[in-house]
Simulated assay, not measured.
Amino acid sequence: MENTLTQAGSLQKPELVNGRLRVAKAGQDREVRLFLAAVTVVSIVALYYLQLDWLKLLTRLPDLGKTFGLLALLDFHEFGLTLEAFMQTVAITVLATIYSVVVGLVLAAFGARNLMKNKFVTYGLSAFFTFLRAVPTPVWVLLALVCIGLGPAAGIVGLCVHATAFFGRAFTQSFEDVPNEVIEALEATGASKLHIFLSAVLPAAASQIMAWTGLRFEINFSESAILGMIGAGGIGFAIANNIQAYQFGAAGVAILLVFVFAYCVELTFTTIKKNYI
């Protein structure tokens, strides 16, 4: 058996580790070493390029602990305003997610290669999604701020642009996972493209759509909290203002609300995935 494995060249000699038989692939350790070496080289180049002042960094680290201590001294005097800003962030997240899901579903239907036979359309949409995702969300929000002005509307538009590209790409992959045999069988019966999409493709991809939606909702909420710091409204604006005014206790309350909501969202979608997906 050992000779056979050696001749095959794909497996190394079995090893007994903690009472269990471990068979490693030949060359696996070499690939790991190459990966670690590449990561090390890239890290060194990045550190050299940034020219970090390590002495200053080490001397300022204690201040970071002091700042967290000040944030922990929660101040609820402005809790009403903080709660209002927090609810605004939640509303922005919900609306941006809903709008981008709807638009993403439509675009993904045209981008899936098993539904749209025109390669120019599918490749064009794929490139379009890549372009929208390549530009960070804050850039889209800043562009929306120029056109719309300060406020939550710019946050919704900016989030929708990036999230639509995310959903478009993710849903396209989900639709393409549907076997071609199913689509061809329905086409043979004379079913229209719309009927095939609504009755076969969409139900088959429903679990993946729910999973992608839950993941993006968490991302949208996190980005909404950040985007408020650049004028898009919401809890981020309250956090930035409180920190700039050295009201760390009030900022700590806002950060705590963000954490609790994000944790509840993650727990909710984890439960849904476990029980229904």
Rank of each mutant, 00 (worst) to 15 (best):
A8I: 08
G214F: 11
D177W: 05
A232K: 03
L105I: 13
A225G: 07
V141I: 11
M229L: 06
A185R: 01
G9P: 00
G233A: 08
R133G: 10
Q12R: 13
A108T: 02
V39A: 14
T97G: 05
A72E: 04
V146R: 03
A206R: 05
L95Y: 15
C160Y: 06
Q173R: 07
I219F: 10
N118A: 13
F261R: 04
L34D: 14
T67S: 12
V157F: 06
M87F: 10
P138T: 04
G27V: 12
Y263F: 15
G69H: 12
G252R: 14
H195W: 09
I92N: 01
A251S: 04
L215W: 04
E2C: 01
A185S: 10
A46S: 04
V258I: 13
N275V: 13
G252E: 13
Q247S: 05
L159V: 14
V41C: 02
D177E: 15
L58H: 00
L47P: 00
K66P: 00
R133W: 12
I226Q: 02
A8Y: 05
F110N: 12
D177T: 11
A204D: 13
E78Y: 15
L202E: 11
R113E: 09
G190K: 08
N114A: 07
E181A: 04
S100C: 05
F35K: 05
V258C: 10
Y49Q: 15
V265M: 13
L36P: 02
W212Q: 05
V161P: 03
V32F: 06
Q28D: 04
I148R: 02
L150M: 05
F259V: 15
I98E: 08
